[in-house]
């Protein structure tokens, strides 16, 4: 038996906002009978693009019904722009978590929301143009890439849990492995989307990151670093205190300092120690 949280049970046994809004401002249909779960989301806006009502109809297991219910509660009262930020992880978190095999239910909720918003704006979602990877569940490469990036997925099993891809005949497992490898060797697209930083902004962000994310853990060991210069993507630092005598300082620079700077500032930064 699945270990559902009490929140999931609550939303399954007494789902909120069940039904369909007449003349909705947006409508999103995802899933299908053959896949075993499907969801129809409708919403209504006021004059300020605020969602004043949302309703959902769900076919599927307890976690699918609960995800639909949670989604409507989360989006009502938000503007379209705010609702657009709701991620599948947030839906799962709202329910106190989902069993990992059921994460695809939260993905389905997020996709319905995205579709309904696209419908309201009169645009279509480009991801449908992707190439079909999983024939059993009709999942495209773009859908898989997105799930992998947004949820930091590492294995075929995780991809199946989030997208269902690969959960049927398993013939696409080779393609999924290829996608996993490609994504791992690519800079994250969110970072690509981040606005280009001016040099001053970049410098400030690096300083802030060192102050907030790096220095405290170095100081725990009696060490420290100082920012010396930034040349293009090269961040030149000097080690201080215990770090300057420590043999593993170069490793710390790579694993901690560079990793943090890449995470918070830019993925192409390289940390170098100033020559002593």
């Amino acid at each position: 038996m699945w270990e559902y949280t009490s929140k999931v049970k609550e939303h399954f046994l007494n789902p909120s906002n069940v039904g369909e809004i007449e003349n909705p401002d947006g409508i999103g249909d995802v899933g299908s009978l053959s896949c075993g779960d499907a969801l129809r989301l409708t919403f209504k806006l006021d004059e300020n693009e605020k969602i004043i009502d949302a309703k959902v109809k769900t076919f599927g297991c307890a976690s699918a019904i609960a995800s639909g219910s949670a989604l409507t509660e989360m989006m009502i009262g938000k503007t379209v722009a705010e609702a657009e930020e709701i991620s599948n992880q947030q839906i799962a978190d709202y329910l106190g978590g989902l069993p990992k095999e059921k994460m695809h239910c939260s993905v389905m909720g997020q996709e319905a929301l995205e579709k309904a918003i696209a419908c309201y704006r009169g645009t279509t979602i480009e991801e449908k143009e992707g190439e079909l990877v999983c024939e059993c569940f009709g999942v495209t490469d773009l859908e898989i890439i997105r799930a992998v990036q947004e949820n930091n997925l590492k294995t075929i099993e995780e991809v199946t849990n989030f997208t269902k891809a690969g959960g049927g005949c398993e013939r696409c497992h080779g393609d999924i492995t290829k996608i996993l490898l490609e994504v791992q060797h690519q800079p994250q697209p969110e970072e690509e989307k981040k606005p280009q930083l001016s040099n001053i902004q970049k410098m400030r962000l690096i300083e802030e990151t060192i102050e907030r994310e790096i220095r405290p853990s170095l100081q725990l060991d009696g060490g420290d670093i100082e920012l010396i210069d930034i040349i293009g993507n090269r961040v030149i630092v000097a080690t201080r205190g215990a770090c300057s005598a420590c043999k593993s300082a170069p490793i710390t620079l790579k694993n901690l300092v560079e990793a943090k700077l890449r995470e918070f500032v830019s993925p192409d930064l390289v940390v170098e120690e100033v020559s002593k």
Partner: peptide, 14 residues
């Protein structure tokens, strides 16, 4: 037709 078994089971379980 048109409903899902796990949901039926969990409601029966209630």
């Amino acid at each position: 037709a048109n409903i899902e078994g796990e949901s039926i089971l969990l409601m029966l379980n209630e």
